[in-house]
Every structure is written in C-alpha cells, then in structure tokens.
C-alpha cells in the first residue's frame, strides 16, 4: 500500500518550523500544500498578488529582476531548507521580484489567506510565524549589505 507523506512531518523536519509545538504544526499543515515546478517555471511574478510563502524541499530557485532587453538579473538563489516570500505580510501584498525554478523544484506552500484567518483568532500563532520570519529577513539583509561591500575587489 502506498502511504501519502504527511505534511505535518515535512513541516516538522523543516528548519523553519524547528521547535514548533505539535498543535501549531497541525494548524500550519492545514494551510500547507505540496507544489512542484519544472526548471524554468515561475513560482511568482513581480507585481502579481503574493498570497503564499514557500519552504524549499528540493531544487534551486532564483530570485530575479526582469530587465528590458537583457537576461534577468539574479539577486539570489535559494535551495533546500530556505524560505521565501514575505510579500504577503507587507502591503501591497504583491511579489517584489520574479521567482523562477532553476531546476526541478519541490516546495511546500503556505496559504496566506488561510493563515491570516487563524492569526486573527490566535495571536500567539502569528507571533510564532513572525519570530521565525524576522531572522530570515535579517540574514537576507546582512547578506545584501555584505554584497554592497563588493568584497572580492582587491585593495588598490
């Protein structure tokens, strides 16, 4: 008999949800879905409504800016264990860039509408999510600052 892998277990094992109580794991799992994108497929497009965030289970995605008459500029690549998509928390709730699968990608998506409803009735649940997102945002900001330094340039 083929057993369907439970999203609860996948969420529990993802570093983003490390330490989350079993009750809350179930709640998040209720808003979660498995998604798969072939290489070249777009997970999100700049300007489109951002109503999900994603945990990367497998493969590599690129965060990109489209530029007229040029190949897209890749801002960063993300892979297994990474999280992306916090535009759903920030008005106007639209993707700030394109997200493209560079390889076959397997993701867990979490539905923002579903989560917002639950946060309204359980602020603790919202806190649990935000305290996980803030370090992700902080790390991305630190990495962006590091890249501003152009650190591979030799001292003149």
């Amino acid at each position: 008999m083929v057993r369907i892998e439970g999203l609860e277990r996948i969420l529990r094992e993802h570093p983003f949800f490390e330490g989350l109580s079993a009750d809350y794991q179930d709640l998040f799992a209720g808003c979660a879905a498995n998604e798969r994108f072939e290489a070249g497929g777009f997970v999100g497009r700049e300007g489109e409504p951002a109503n999900k965030f994603y945990l990367v289970r497998h493969g590599i995605v690129a965060l990109e800016y489209a530029v007229p008459a040029r190949p897209p500029l890749v801002l960063e690549t993300l892979e297994e264990g990474d999280v992306f998509g916090w535009s759903w928390m920030v008005p106007p709730h639209t993707w700030a860039f394109d997200v493209r699968a560079m390889t076959l990608v397997r993701l867990i998506s979490l539905d923002a509408e579903c989560l917002r409803g639950k946060f309204e009735s359980d602020h603790r649940l919202g806190y649990e999510l935000f305290r996980r997102f803030v370090p992700v945002v902080a790390k991305r900001l630190a990495a962006a600052r590091m890249r501003l330094l152009d650190m591979y340039d030799s001292p003149k």
């Binding site: 690129a62 190949p71 897209p72 890749v74 960063e76 690549t77 493209r100 990495a143 890249r147 591979y152």
Partner: peptide
C-alpha cells in the same frame, strides 16, 4: 557569485552561505 544574469546556472549569494551549508 555575488551577481549574475539568468544564463548562470550556479549559485548566487555570499560565500558565507556556503560555509553555513
């Protein structure tokens, strides 16, 4: 690499992230 266009098939990001992984 710190920055690339869509033609690059490798990773984009800071070298410290490689250390973490």
């Amino acid at each position: 690499v710190d920055r690339a266009t869509g033609k690059w098939r490798g990773r984009v990001g800071v070298v410290t992230k490689l250390i973490a992984r």
